[in-house]
Write a protein that binds this DNA or RNA. Sequence first.
DNA 1: GCAATAGTGTCTGTAAGACAGTATATT
DNA 2: AATATACTGTCTTACAGACACTATTGC
Lengths: 252, 252
Amino acid sequence: MENRNRFFDVVAKGHLYLQNVSIDNVVFGYHNKELKILLQRPQNNNKWALAGGYIKRTESIEDAARRIASERTGLNGLFLKQFKAFGSPSRSGNIDPSLELAGKTKENWTLDYFVSIGFYTLTEFERVKPSGDFYIEECKWWDIHRLPAMVFDHQEIIEAALKALRLHIYHYPIGYELLSEKFTIPEIHALYETILGKSLDSRNFTKKLLATGIIKKTSERRNIGPHRSPYLYVFDTVNYKNALNEGMALFI
Amino acid sequence: MENRNRFFDVVAKGHLYLQNVSIDNVVFGYHNKELKILLQRPQNNNKWALAGGYIKRTESIEDAARRIASERTGLNGLFLKQFKAFGSPSRSGNIDPSLELAGKTKENWTLDYFVSIGFYTLTEFERVKPSGDFYIEECKWWDIHRLPAMVFDHQEIIEAALKALRLHIYHYPIGYELLSEKFTIPEIHALYETILGKSLDSRNFTKKLLATGIIKKTSERRNIGPHRSPYLYVFDTVNYKNALNEGMALFI
DNA sequence: GCAATAGTGTCTGTAAGACAGTATATT
DNA sequence: AATATACTGTCTTACAGACACTATTGC
């Protein structure tokens, strides 16, 4: 009656979560010219994993992604973007490694073939205190250029997320979740350079970003020491939201 | 012991297919300036549905989408593009309506909350003899502008697919699956106009399409009656594949 | 010669991209 | 005065977009 245990497992868990589907969040964190990703390491495991989890039967996939991201970062109202689904028998095994990787047996429902819906999210990483849970031994930020060994296909998921983010940035505004309410041109300039991983001519960047109308100048300046003080800018709420919905062209 | 039936159902089907995940294919068909979508109508139902289905435990989501599309169109090697996943409790019910819509009881596993992975595919619709199966009463092409009432959120999925296709066409080549091996400029011009739903200046279109290098002129011409005979073009295999992988810019 | 469609070149205006020197604040 | 950073304008070039006439064929 080996299957019997499986039946009960399926049903017991099955009431709360969907089976064979999970969420993987690529949580990007930006601060001071550094782009990082939030990863977690399950107990008794030396590989790292994305902030993933399961979908409750009462929530949409977007809600699930939001909840899972919020459980790890402590933040609400994060910007979330679905970018791709991953699913093949060979990636088998669960995506939230909390159970499987902690050495659970083959009968466990989480060891099944999972299709994972990939989302990415953006946040200012100094605002975030990463927090794991009972099964997570560590949860921390990793620089995008120095990632540790990762479980399953999570490396590939990250690459796809970064590619999607870099495409996204040319068509939609970015920055609201990554900069303080008021920010300088050099700050947003550094943000774009960091995300795209390449340098952008500052004169042209300023010209084109202003032309989109998503930011506007204030009369205030930031005092940053022995230099000319940069003006502060804010996002233009109306234009920003509009560009988020309608898209825009930004050839930087 | 009402739940008992459910257990057996879960297990019986569970061995073959993943639970709570499905595929929905938006099969676009093009022919002679018409863009259509392949829909199926399950037995005893007056609403139509996308060509959807379930994922076998032995196949990737891409393989599943390819198999399902091929089951409906009879064609292999179709171009498939994953564009979005859909999932919320309110869309509840299965996506392949073959079982649920045919009036199965609530105990049926297919009535669960399903996350559906949306793919779209392109084909020349004159090549296709739509075929249903035991549960499908009808399967046919519908013009994109005159779609029938549809089950669940399938209307929304189609809109998302069309949006994704129209974005795609500006960054990747299109046409290999939709035109004959040799085709004229007016033919490919009509294809682009039909997909985008707007007219494109023929001089600029030709100029820019040729500039991408994805098509090349042959010395043959097509004899189409009392008019000047247009030259035939073919896709440049190398450039086409390269553009599919690397992307391209086509500002038409 | 008439009808119908194929095919093609030029001009203009805009904006992308390259480029560097001046202004300002602090010590 | 020296230093470090903010800030800005012009020129060139490429190409997007607008535009219309000629060529060819069959009837």
